[in-house]
């Protein structure tokens, strides 16, 4: 197990290094870094001193080294708009996004797995057809439009839920959360539903495919022969085995949930990193854009690592194969 984790850690570090090179090349080599990193309204003198301070007059390799060592210390430059370190802006808004993404993921799993089970256990019936068509609909609904429709129906017409913002938040262990107050929860429902829908459709499909692959296998026949109830077979034996693909894909998808939070946060004015990203792109606040990218990729790498570890815990064959 230790060998396995160490090996994965090394791979993760490799991916991070590769990403840093790509981001560096994107900002420093393709574009003109002076334009990207120095505010457009800077005077010629400010510009010159900034170029020297950022080391832009030095060779590319040396610049990369400066970029990397600054990034390692968490220094991604200062926001032009807020005049604060870019990284602290990101970190201040990160909990809101993580909260939203986590709730969306839970909705997707809690609703998606049962629907997928029903669909997979009764293939080619009316129920199955309905659920599967529903999941194609879930894939096809443009995320932003679906969010607008939620606002239109539940906020404008019915007036049940607020259309945007985060509502009352509470502090727990230094983390601000909307989960602990009624007002916060009502603000969370619509954006979380909006963000969950795509992955809900995905979880339904994964579960259904898994069930259909597992049901004809010998160990299920054996369990039946042993006299286990159908209920126990499904809830224990089948469920355990479909968790492997579900955990992997959903773990990977957590990254894209965070990416899609950009859309959800824009529609529902949710004060997370996604909204910050779009605002920063509009205001040409490049240091914030660059640090968003690096922070999010860093998170992806960590998530992938955790998924791999979870995967190997669920399926010992993978761990064994890898350490041999």
């Amino acid at each position: 197990m230790t060998v396995f984790i160490l090996r994965r850690l090394l791979q993760s570090a490799g991916v991070l290094l590769a990403t840093s090179v790509i981001v560096f090349l994107g900002v420093y080599a393709i574009g003109n870094p002076a334009d990207i990193l120095i505010a457009a309204d800077a005077t010629q003198l400010e510009r010159q001193s900034a170029i020297v301070a950022l080391g832009l007059d030095r060779p590319l390799i040396e610049q990369y080294w400066i970029f990397l060592s600054n990034a390692l210390r968490g220094d991604f430059g200062r926001s032009f708009v807020f005049n604060q370190p870019a990284i602290s802006l990101i970190l201040a808004r990160l909990p809101a996004t993580l909260e939203l993404a986590l709730v969306a993921l839970i909705i997707a799993l809690v609703v998606g797995i049962p629907l997928g089970l029903v669909s997979g256990l009764k293939p080619n019936t009316l129920v199955d057809e309905t659920i599967m068509t529903g999941s194609i609909l879930g894939f096809s609904l443009p995320n932003f439009w679906q969010g607008m429709m939620l606002i239109m129906i539940f906020s404008v017409w019915l007036g049940w839920l607020p259309a945007g913002g985060r509502g009352d938040t509470a502090q727990v262990l230094g983390i601000t959360t909307s989960l602990l107050s009624w007002d916060g929860l009502t603000h969370l429902i619509l954006p979380a539903t909006n963000l969950a829908l795509f992955n809900l459709a995905l979880v339904i499909r994964l579960t259904r495919t898994g069930v259909r692959e597992i049901m004809p296998l010998d160990f299920i026949k054996f369990a039946r022969a042993k006299g286990l109830t159908e209920r126990r077979i499904v809830l224990v034996h089948v469920l355990k085995n479909i968790m492997i693909p579900v955990v992997t894909v959903v773990g990977m998808e957590f990254g894209s949930i965070i990416a899609f939070a950009v859309v959800t946060e824009t529609i529902f004015s949710w004060p997370g990193i996604g909204k910050l990203l779009i605002d920063s792109i509009m205001l040409l606040d490049r240091p914030v854009v660059v640090s968003y990218l690096l922070v999010v990729v860093f998170m992806f790498v960590i998530i992938n690592l955790l998924v791999d570890i979870a995967y190997s815990l669920l399926d010992p064959r993978i761990r064994l194969r890898d350490t041999q």
């Binding site: 990416a259 899609f260 990203l277 992806f300």
Partner: peptide
């Protein structure tokens, strides 16, 4: 490995 929408963005 990277979400398509993020790369495009």
């Amino acid at each position: 490995g990277l979400p398509a929408i993020l790369v495009a963005l």
